[in-house]
Structure formats: C-alpha cells, structure tokens
C-alpha cells in the first residue's frame, strides 16, 4: 500500500507540472472554426496511467456518464409509481420497453428474450449518446465542456459492434457447437457453387462488425460536421455588411433543417444498431435454420 502511494505522488507531481508547462508554452484554446474541433478528446480530470494506458476522465467519459445517468434517472423516476394506468413518463418508458421487446421477439423469437437486457441497454446507450450530442453548447463554455457525442468516435462504435459480434460467436458455438458453421453454408445451393458461396458468406460475416460500427460512427460524424459547417457560415456572414447579415438566414435555416434530420438520425441509428444486433443474434440462436 505504502509502495504504491509513494509511486503515485511523483507521478502526480510530474503530471501537474507538465500541465502547467503546457499551459504556459502554447495557447490551448484554438478559436478557429475547425469542424473537427468538436470531436477532440479533452482531458478533464487526469488519472495516472494504468499499465501505460491513459484512462483519464475526458469529455467523452463525461458525456457517456451524463447519458447513462440521465437514462437511469429517467427510467427510475418514470417507473417509480408502478402505476397501473401509466402517466406520460411511464408511458414513454413502457413504449420503449415494448418497442425493443417486440423487436427482439420478432427477430429472434420468444427464446431470444434472454438477449433483451443487452439489446435494450445497447439501444438506450446509443440513443442517449446520440441525442445528448445534439444539445447545443452553451456559448462561452470553457474548452472541453462543449457538448460531445461519444458515438461519433469510431473506437466507441466499433467496440459496441465487436461486443455484439463476440456475443454472437460465443453464444453461437455454445448453442450449436460446430453446427454454428452451417451459418456459412446456405441450404439449396448447388455443390459446385458452394465454395464460392461459403467464401462470400464468410467475408460478409467478417464485415458485419465493421459495417455495424462504421455506420453509426459515420452518421454521427457527418451530421455534426454539417451542423458545424453551417454554423461557421452563419458566423462568417454575420461578420459582413447588412446584406450578408441577411444572407446568414439561409445557413441558419439550414441548421434548423439539419438539426431536425439529425434528431431523426439519432433515433434511426440507435434503432438500426439494435435491430441489426437482433438479426445477428438470431443467426447464433438459429444457425441451422439459415
């Protein structure tokens, strides 16, 4: 215990020093309207490295925490009354529950309900992160405290996608044994075509986690870039004369339109992620029926 503490103190000291020097050496706040700036990972509470990995609490961690906390608060408060006749909040919670439950039942069948907690958590996590990222940053917020979309980072979306595929593979082999490999052998294919089909099926299986992860990432990423670019136009035009200021209305309306689209996309991508997860889990549950 004492050894680890004595190790920690110099590490902390050096961290603080490096921060101070970085502050004095270069301006940290980049005020340029760079559309990529919103995706920057900013360290908010530095942690000492663990096994050489930087696990500091960053803005990404903050917004994931906010999303999860908000989801838990919403579901806890809305179901607190356990009302027989639900109020508005409880209705929303029940609708989401039934929506995902029906999705799982339709895609996998009643035996797929063991995956329901996973699919439900996945949907809520992705949805909340997508939606919270759409809140506009409070003007003048300190650097690093702008709204941030955790799902606009490919490592996050790919990790969720690989988690799904890992569950599919592990459960698939657990349930079907080597029969899970029938997944790559569709029935009713002529024998001479089989090697080619198996190859195609195998490649398509390998591409699943990538397409699943990249789809969500790309949607979030592109939407936020478009919003930022339009916002940049507004700021630039407002710096001009009267006519240019008037013209700033056009990208402003564009922002409103894209914002509405992005709210739809936030729901849609969470839905797509959840339903594709269900489809893939169905392959693991019913590998022989493929």
């Amino acid at each position: 215990m004492t050894i680890s503490l004595s190790d920690l103190i110099p590490t902390l000291m050096s961290l603080i020093l490096s921060k101070l020097s970085a502050f004095s050496a270069a301006p940290i706040m980049v005020m340029a309207a760079d559309p990529m700036e919103q995706f920057e990972i900013v360290r908010l509470a530095p942690f000492p490295n663990v096994f050489g990995f930087d696990l500091s609490f960053t803005n990404s961690s903050l917004w994931m925490t906010i999303s999860v906390t908000a989801a838990l608060i919403f579901f806890t408060l809305s179901t607190r009354g356990r009302a027989l006749i639900p109020g508005r909040a409880q209705s929303v919670a029940e609708i989401i529950y039934e929506f995902i439950a029906n999705m799982v039942r339709d895609a996998i069948g009643p035996e797929g309900m063991k995956f329901f907690p996973y699919v439900f958590t996945l949907f809520i996590f992705v949805l909340m992160n997508n939606l919270f990222g759409l809140f506009p940053t409070i003007p003048g917020a300190p650097h690093g405290l702008h709204t941030f979309t955790a799902t606009s980072h490919i490592i996050v979306t790919l990790a969720l996608a690989f988690l799904t595929i890992a569950i599919v593979i592990i459960y698939g082999f657990y349930k079907n044994g080597f029969g899970f490999l029938k997944l790559f052998v569709p029935s009713g294919v002529p024998a001479w075509l089989l090697p080619l089909i198996v190859l195609i099926e195998f490649i398509s299986f390998l591409s699943r986690p990538l397409s699943l992860g990249i789809r969500l990432f790309a949607n979030m990423f592109a939407g936020h870039i478009i919003l930022k670019v339009f916002a940049g136009f507004v700021v630039s035009l407002l710096g001009g004369g009267f006519m240019l200021k008037l013209l700033a209305l056009v990208p402003m309306l564009g922002i409103v339109a894209v914002m509405m689209l992005e709210i739809l996309v936030a729901f849609l991508q969470a839905y797509v992620f959840a339903i594709l997860t269900c489809m893939y889990l169905n392959d693991a549950e019913h590998a022989d029926a493929h």
Binding site: F53, T58, S60, M64, P117, T121, I124, A150, I155, A159
Partner: peptide, 21 residues
C-alpha cells in the same frame, strides 16, 4: 485516446447494463 475511451465505455455501458438488467 482509445484506451481511455474503451475504459470509460466499458464502465458506463457496464453500469447501465447491470442497472437495466
């Protein structure tokens, strides 16, 4: 930044999953 993101993703997603389940 990957290690930190993965760590916090696992932590927050894990907490959400346990609480939900």
């Amino acid at each position: 930044t990957f290690a930190g993101q993965l760590f916090w993703l696992a932590l927050t997603f894990g907490i959400l999953f346990v609480m939900m389940k």
